[in-house]
């Protein structure tokens, strides 16, 4: 298993009055080639967890296994740079990291840092801009003049241009309108299916988990509470209730129908299939 946490603990500001244990002996293995959602309440350690994946944080205790590399607290930061080439981390509100004069230069910045040649970087930048749905005609514009959604796509392109095997996104749809977040999620599905990237998404939106993700990891109070496939997860009503998770609308509607006597087949998770199934029942 190329991504695994083994008894990983992380404490912020150890040895001070502000000391705070964000992760407590987390054991977790992430499946490659899938889209994994990481959910949990605010302060449950989601962001701390994902920052271990490209060694921005090194575990206080335990070890993280990422693509045949073992990260412990003893590793020197210098040795960790090559890891960041393979694991791309997109932070919350990534649009604030843009700084170059033009969109193109900003996207090229990452690959150039990892020693890619100028030409190759440019080629990759143009490609990734197209992938994230940015019209190449604005490549010479200043990133600061663009809209929020466009900026975010450019920031994501900036990470994708590094060509990481694993893409980690911390609340990529925060602050986007419903249409924008839908197409953003579709982009990640495309990256996963078409470009075979392993994708990890930190999110609060259960609809996104249901519709776009394969696996789900639930964090609570610095611990990994459960890790299973999305299908199993949303079928386990008792667990959902225990974890106080808001069930997606489609599933709640289905549940209400079942209570009213109309039981539909298992595994329906999107609106259209549900509509068809109901229509099939109603028609004589």
């Amino acid at each position: 298993m190329p991504i695994a946490f083994e008894k990983v603990s992380y404490t912020y500001a150890p040895g001070t009055p502000f000391s705070y244990a964000a992760l407590k002996e987390v054991d977790l293995a992430i499946e490659m080639g899938k889209i994994t959602a990481i959910i949990g309440p605010t302060g449950s350690g989601k962001s701390t967890l994902v920052q271990h994946l490209n060694a921005l944080l090194q575990p206080s205790d335990g070890q993280v296994l990422v693509l045949d590399r073992i990260i412990t607290h003893a590793d020197k930061p210098k040795q960790l740079k090559s890891l960041r080439k393979n694991v791309g981390l997109v932070f919350q509100f990534p649009e604030y990291q843009l700084f170059e004069e033009t969109v193109l230069k900003d996207v090229m910045f990452g690959p150039l840092n990892f020693g890619v040649s100028e030409e190759e970087a440019k080629k990759r930048a143009m490609e990734t801009l197209t992938v994230v749905g940015i019209d190449p005609s604005i490549a010479e514009k200043s990133p600061l003049d663009l809209s929020g959604g466009q900026k975010r796509r450019i920031a994501i392109a900036g990470i994708l241009a590094i060509d990481p095997k694993v893409l980690v996104l911390d609340e990529p749809t925060a602050g986007l309108d419903p249409q924008g977040s839908k197409s953003m999620m579709q982009l990640f599905t495309q990256l996963n299916r078409q470009y075979e990237k392993t994708v990890l998404i930190v999110t609060h939106d259960m609809e996104h988990v249901l519709n776009y993700c394969d696996n789900v990891v639930v964090m609570q109070d610095g611990k990994c509470v459960t890790h299973q496939t999305v299908k199993e997860f949303f079928n386990d009503g008792k667990l959902l209730h225990e974890l106080n998770i808001k069930v997606p609308n489609v599933l709640r509607f289905k549940e209400s129908l079942a209570k009213g006597g109309m039981s539909l087949p298992e595994g329906i998770s999107d609106l259209q299939t549900l509509a068809k199934a109901i229509a099939g029942r109603i028609k004589p």
């Binding site: 920052q51 930061p77 960041r84 932070f91 990534p94 840092n113 590094i162």
Partner: peptide, 16 residues
């Protein structure tokens, strides 16, 4: 600190 981390993810190395 946030921006430093974001740029570190893009291969920026403030020390080396």
């Amino acid at each position: 600190q946030r921006i430093m981390k974001a740029q570190a993810s893009r291969g920026v190395d403030l020390k080396e």
